[in-house]
Nucleic acid binder design. Structure first.
Lengths: 225, 225
DNA sequence: CTCGTTCCTTAAGTAATCGTAAGCGCGGCG
DNA sequence: CGCCGCGCTTACGATTACTTAAGGAACGAG
């Protein structure tokens, strides 16, 4: 597998490249956006990893230019800060996945594998649908059976994470890392509280609940079961 | 499709040409206004892309001279600065569309396609409509339910940006970059203030507000929801 | 140069949201 | 059958986010 890494911080680039090579990837490095785009358009890479902030062109511009050139090479964008802003912009530009620094190297590897596995799907998801529940990621809107539902920003993050993995059990640890950016147990019941609030928002008053507890494991978003 | 690119910055020209060629266009480059006009009058091009500032003749002069010669080849003018005045001037001079640098490459492609598709019909998007709110981009006029509304230049920029992305959440960062050209957080609440003023202008006194805030994310212009 | 407009800042007020903790209910297991 | 642990709910205080008003700087018109 041939990866292109676009990263201006030489040290970071070397470190990442080393790790990736140890995992069996062939890695080329581009030091700025212009060089990165130039190489990316050659189209011989299986996956591109691009920093969000770059000299000349940033990661998102690279994604959109690539896409408009008809290249569907999956792009994983690394961002300095995992703010809501960043994520929305990332989605808009057509990035296939988004990873906020600082990240665990394992996670990077996991996402790379996920992207490679799904085989260059050219479409970006801006809407997710589980049964009669619908998420509009760009408009930040939630509807159930057609009626709009108000959710707070945290609730939306939580719901998005669950929805992207609909049908799969999501553990508390995963939620803590993805939604709260905590890499340890906070010893409180933050999650329970927000799950409860989310339930009140999306399940209350509907026949079939979608958000289920899996005792001892975590939570699942799915229809039935 | 045969394009003529008139651009004096060699590097920019090469980059654009490369991207356009990869999108399937045949591209000729002219390095200044004189050469550009000379080639343009041959009349064998399907579309001309001209920089606004050029040695010898600028982009707008080229447009008007072309038109006086009876050539109706569509011209897309690239401007260094996306001020409202520039855009109006560009359109008035007979340019078919106008794009402010820096622009995303995909936007350039989209506009080229739009111009080619409509087969040399000189019609540009000059009006945007969301529910009963109407923007006249050329005249810089705003009306709601038929009654004219006064907005300042900043307010218009802001409104235009929101209107072009109606239904999608627009983040503060996006607004700062697009309307204020700030690429960092100014630590003040400029945006809030202008949003507030814009609200007073377009929503005050109307039943259904169109400009909604999405807490923790940004703002949306949309009807309902 | 002066006036008026537009824009930005500051600052105070208001509202929504988040996290914590306490108490309750339910189910599993002894 | 009763205890224990896990998860759910609710309430509250702290924090953050948003709104609005008012003053001053910058700009352009006359």
């Amino acid at each position: 597998m041939h990866l292109l890494l676009i990263e201006d911080d030489t040290e970071a680039a070397r470190f990442l490249a080393k790790g990736l090579r140890e995992s069996g990837y062939v890695v080329d490095i581009a030091a700025d956006g212009r060089e990165g785009l130039f190489r990316a358009t050659e189209g011989t890479y299986d996956l591109i990893i691009a920093d969000r902030q770059l000299p000349h062109f940033d990661g998102l511009s690279i994604v959109s230019m690539l896409r408009k050139n008809g290249k569907h090479t999956p792009v994983l964008v690394l961002s300095a800060l995992g703010s809501v802003d960043d994520r929305i912009e990332g989605l808009r530009a057509g990035g296939d996945d988004y990873l906020a620094k600082p990240f665990a190297f394992d996670e990077l590897l996991a996402r790379i594998e996920a992207l490679l596995r799904r085989g260059n799907l050219p479409e970006v998801t801006t809407r997710i649908r589980i049964a009669d529940l619908e998420l509009d990621l760009l408009g930040r809107k939630v509807t159930r059976a057609g009626t709009p539902i108000d959710v707070t920003s945290k609730e939306f993050q939580l719901l998005e994470f669950l929805a992207r993995r609909a049908g799969q059990v999501v553990t508390r640890t995963m939620l803590l890392e993805a939604v709260w950016d905590l890499h340890f147990d906070p010893q409180t019941n933050v999650i329970d509280v927000h799950i409860s609030r989310l339930r009140a928002a999306i399940d209350k008053g509907f026949e079939r609940p979608l958000l289920h507890t899996v005792r001892g494991a975590g939570y699942v978003l799915r229809d039935g079961g």
